[in-house]
Design a protein around this nucleic acid. Structure first.
Lengths: 200, 200
DNA sequence: ACAGATTGGCTAGCGCTGCTAGAATTCCCG
DNA sequence: CGGGAATTCTAGCAGCGCTAGCCAATCTGT
């Protein structure tokens, strides 16, 4: 039994190594540079080893994406709990989200841009995904009007943030006015709130 | 001179043929199916002919994207002028935009998702791009508050629409509640308007 | 402790991609 | 009708994701 567990442990560690190498390579040189040959060289094994861990390159990217979601969730939580007030919390989370997307573009692409067959909006989505979405929900929920569906409202806010990130990153929108656009988005989502709800 | 012009005319026609074939193939089977070999077979020429017209596959996709922008601009204009009232106009354009994105996903990807080196937010952007954005501006401008920068507000609205389209299309958001999310987005963008501005 | 079974990794290769050099053909003009 | 220019095609390069089949190291049963 000890031998079995040791092997499983080593195998799990190698799997972690693959995912880490893929993420680092992608963040350093973009996903185009992440080829199975290059990745195999990076982990100092031959190509077929990758396929004994993952079904293919897409599955490796999916694993990186899940890891990235955990990172994003943590950054959003930190941002949200660092400020006081519902309006500020929504802004902080929005800021954290877009900053993440612009600071770690390759990771962001794996998570939200590239086609990747992960279950997303279902109960059997990976925990990290649900955590990240949950952070958004916690920020949006306080600004929802009485009759609003919080889930749908969160998804809509998410879409706004995602649009800003992707359009800026792909050069469709100039980078410089990003903060102003983000402020506009947040402003419109908090416009319906009661005026005296908080002391700014 | 007559011969020269005839050749140029034939050449221009073949270029149109390439772009059309690329668009149709992409819309029928996705961009992965649009290989240079396949495209060459489709137009009944050999591969290198493509490279005498375009710098590479990316340039062909860019040409398709520009053509798509013209289509989108027209559909948005039709939608906008078909209704009366600023709020309804904004909704109609948003609806037209997202419908376009979901009805012609391959075209939409070439325009707004895939990396393509087209000048976007500059004066030397292709006319079709500026037209499409101009249609958005015309719909957003009436709902802008006095101090607002209309351009930035339009970009923000665009980002919201783009986020909705891409997240739904990639399976990150369930398709069914799309209309409700769109209504939420539009609602928040028109929330600041004076109540009696129009008769619904 | 040793023979046989099993696991696991590697070499080599398939079919495909975007793209291009150089041969071959076609066309125009004198 | 022949020479020169423009144009198109054949053939191939390097690299991609992925996999079949061999080979060595390891574990198991006696």
């Amino acid at each position: 039994m000890s031998i079995q567990t040791r092997r499983e442990r080593e195998r799990a560690e190698r799997e972690r190594l693959i995912v880490t190498a893929a993420r680092e390579l992608a963040e350093a040189e973009g996903w185009d540079a992440v080829t199975t040959r290059r990745l195999a060289a990076e982990i100092e094994y031959s190509q077929p080893v990758l396929y004994s861990h993952f079904k293919g390159k897409g599955a490796i990217m999916a694993a990186v994406a899940v890891q990235g979601c955990a990172d994003l969730a943590q950054e959003m939580r930190t941002a949200r709990t660092a400020v006081k007030g519902t309006r500020k919390a929504l802004a902080a989370v929005g800021e954290a989200y877009t900053t993440f997307g612009r600071r770690r573009p390759a990771l962001y692409d794996a998570m939200f841009t590239h086609a990747v067959d992960l279950p997303f909006a279902t109960p059997d989505a990976p925990a990290a995904l649900q955590e990240a979405f949950g952070e958004l929900v916690r920020a949006v929920e306080p600004i929802a009007a009485p009759g609003d569906d919080v889930g749908l409202l969160t998804e809509t806010y998410w879409a706004g943030l995602h649009g800003l990130v992707t359009l800026v990153r792909s050069g469709r929108l100039p980078e410089e006015a990003h903060e102003q656009r983000l402020a506009l988005l947040i402003g419109h989502f908090t416009a319906g709130m009661g005026a005296g709800a908080e002391a700014d």
